[in-house]
Write a protein that binds this DNA or RNA. Structure first.
Lengths: 192, 192
DNA sequence: CTGGTCATGTAACACGTTACATGATTGT
DNA sequence: ACAATCATGTAACGTGTTACATGACCAG
């Protein structure tokens, strides 16, 4: 079971769809060609994580609509509570977020805080790297033709990526803390 | 020549370092193990993109310090001005930013505007997806136990990722526009 | 009549990860 | 003692990409 296996199960835990539609869903945040999805689905069907029914369509080819089994659902829920660490790839985190509604408040907030911790550490080491660069180049960082300028703007980008993700984590934790039934359909954590 | 080949040349165009140090540099934004770097360096040395000199050290193993050749530098500069498109991976963009000081203002701004265009289109399609989800679920998006809640917060994350990157692109373009020699060592485009 | 979408599948190849292999030095 | 850092390299395996293969339908 690799990340894509869990990913397909994660999506099928929410809706029963074809391999083609799975590809479209997952492509929103992870580029996976159909050539990887069909063989995996066949394997997972053999191993009883999913089942399918053949659906005939008018004007379109037949399709296999896959559904998750009880075994598959248990597998997803076990995977969901495995703690994240620094080596967890963003795709796996995104897939867990896709299923966060299966978690109780405690586990959901833990998932977000684990991620936040990794990101805070990343920012810390990158700020240290900026200090190293500044010490090495004294002020040529201000010239558009200096390699130190290039490195500086790149590291600032990486820091801002982590920073916005931390803000997003805290926004979601806030939604759990301020409880149910409030309307949060605006992205107050980030104005654009 | 793949992305990693250009990446190693991109870094060597700024400093002559060992394969081990190349790994450390590139790991700041792209996880590459040494097992991929050493064979590629050997290949590029054979093809005269780089040369190396064996440097003896006290208390540490000998190392091969690689330098870029004239042929390698021409290759990097040709690669730098190849326009980005939607299929360009973020690592390749980051590597080009690492070398942006080789570009004149016109080409540098073009690189950033190409990236911005791709990101604006991404945000557009994701906002459309949010509208689809809202239309499908009417208000259960507000419940922490709804799969629509999970999808909604995930898409908002993807939008905020693109939005902060656009802000960064505009910040850098601004540095080129407001010209040389001003002190921009604060990240005024993003407070954290 | 050409290209795009829906729909499934396979095969060859390239890319990426993990483990094996060696070995001195330095810090806990 | 044990682990980490510096330093290079190879090998086996798993992941990911591109192309081949088929075919009906619909829009420009």
């Amino acid at each position: 079971m690799n990340t894509l296996n869990y990913g397909l199960l994660a999506i099928l835990s929410n809706e029963s769809i074809s391999g083609y539609d799975l590809m479209l869903r997952i492509n929103a945040f992870w580029h996976i060609p159909h050539s990887r999805i069909y063989p995996l689905l066949a394997k997972m069907e053999q191993e009883k994580f999913v089942t399918y029914t053949l659906v005939e369509q008018k004007g379109k080819p037949d399709k296999k609509v896959y559904s998750i089994t009880e075994k598959g659902l248990i597998t997803v829920k076990e995977w969901l509570i495995v703690p994240l660490d620094a080596s967890t790839k963003k795709e796996e985190f995104y897939l867990k977020i896709y299923c966060i509604h299966y978690l109780d408040k405690e586990h959901a907030v833990q998932l977000l805080k684990d991620r936040e911790e990794v990101l805070v550490e990343k920012i810390h080491s990158r700020k240290k790297r900026i200090e190293e660069i500044k010490a090495e180049c004294d002020s040529s960082i201000n010239s558009l033709n200096s390699p130190y300028f290039s490195r500086y703007i790149l590291i600032q980008k990486l820091i801002s990526d982590s920073a916005i993700e931390i803000k997003w984590c805290r926004w979601v934790i806030g939604l759990y803390d301020t409880a149910e039934n409030i309307n949060f359909l605006d992205m107050s954590f980030f104005e654009f």
